[in-house]
């Protein structure tokens, strides 16, 4: 079996049997992928009764297509900017946050592959303890400045005495693990504290607030994936650039980033999709003006049961731009030639 799945350099080497085998698997999975999408498309044009009286497959043959979902959501009197406003919000928030996450996340990933960081575990533990102490004091009614001072004092004291004496130190992989561990807690568990924090900072119901939140949530992904891509880039190229007098920034921007472009694009698409589709944070941190599309989709399940036609339409509307974008960018992802050429 495994024989079928590796890469042969010579296109003519694919035997007909293997071709048939490959195509049948590919076509099978294409059907598995596209059937639900087909169902979305036909459902968007169905009347409630066409949905509820058994499977109807082909418009005009099985049932008469109707545009009532379009009318209700997009063109009716009360529709107004019911869809357009969340749509624009989604575009702004998702693209803003994924660009930001990609920028600062990939520089961090680069730093983690090229520099060595050695935070002392004792110092980190002490830091965590003092932050906890400060927070506790603040909650207990101490003023913010006073609890901050106490926390810093305790930190300095412990760090100077025993914190530094621990053998060994943490490394880059521990920093990376810490970053990714931030994704482990279910968002519902922290949403109320985040809400309170945003309220105090005036970030509630702003696009900026959502962009900041999504950037922080997506950063670990960018760091982890880009680390692997940067690792695959041979360091010799950079070294020769340094010899030519380039600064660290120039090397990163002019040499490393272009080489990692396929990885950047693949990662970028993924974080864009995550930000595009995020629900829990969006629900709580937005108000009427900044609601995003996933909330609108979820809202179609109200007291009358799910409005299948509206859900289908909204999902299709949400997917369309990302599909176009991926189709445009696919050639860059696929052209791992860049990486391959360097390695080879």
């Amino acid at each position: 079996m495994i024989r079928q799945f590796f890469i042969r350099p010579n296109p003519f080497a694919i035997s007909p049997a293997r071709k048939i085998f490959s195509y049948s698997l590919l076509i099978f999975w294409t059907i598995v992928t596209l059937l639900p999408f087909y169902w979305l498309v036909v459902t968007a044009f169905k009347l409630p009764i066409d949905v509820s009286t058994g499977p109807k497959y082909v418009p005009y043959v099985d049932y008469k297509p109707d545009t009532h979902a379009f009318d209700d959501l997009l063109f009716s009197d009360v529709a107004g900017n019911f869809v357009t406003r969340p749509y624009i919000n989604t575009i702004v928030v998702a693209s803003g946050s994924s660009a930001l996450a990609l920028l600062i996340g990939s520089t961090a990933a680069y730093a983690l592959t090229r520099f060595e960081y050695r935070p002392k575990p004792g110092l980190v533990l002490t830091l965590a303890l003092s932050v906890g102490l400060g927070a506790y004091l603040y909650v207990q009614g101490l003023s913010m400045i006073l609890s901050g001072v106490v926390a810093i004092a305790v930190y300095a004291l412990i760090a100077q005495t025993i914190g530094r004496r621990f053998k060994g130190s943490l490394g880059n992989s521990d920093i990376a693990f810490w970053l990714v561990s931030q994704r482990m807690l279910p968002p519902v568990a922290v949403i109320v504290p985040i809400y309170v924090m945003y309220q105090n900072l005036g970030l509630l119901n702003t696009r900026l607030g959502l962009i900041v939140a999504y950037t922080a949530v997506n950063l670990p992904l960018v760091v982890w994936f880009m680390r692997d891509y940067f690792q695959a880039i041979p360091i010799e190229l950079e070294e020769s650039a340094f010899i030519d007098g380039a600064s660290q920034y120039q090397v990163l921007w002019r040499i490393v980033m272009p080489l990692a472009a396929p990885g950047l694009i693949a990662t970028g698409i993924i974080v864009l999709i995550f930000a595009w589709n995020e629900y829990t944070l969006a629900l709580f941190l937005t108000g009427a003006d900044t609601q995003t599309m996933p909330i609108l989709v979820a809202a179609q399940n109200a007291t009358r049961g799910p409005q299948w036609w509206s859900i289908s339409l909204l999902v299709l509307m949400m997917v369309a731009p990302i599909v176009l974008l991926s189709a445009l960018l696919e050639r860059f992802i696929a052209s791992g030639i860049l990486l391959g050429a360097v390695k080879g």
Binding site: W29, T33, L34, F37, Y279, P294, V297, I311, M318, S326
Partner: peptide, 17 residues
């Protein structure tokens, strides 16, 4: 491109789908 499609739907939407 086709194989990427499912990931692009919002999770709630996939549940309904």
């Amino acid at each position: 491109i086709i194989f990427l499609l499912p990931m692009m739907i919002t999770p709630v939407g996939i549940g309904f789908l």
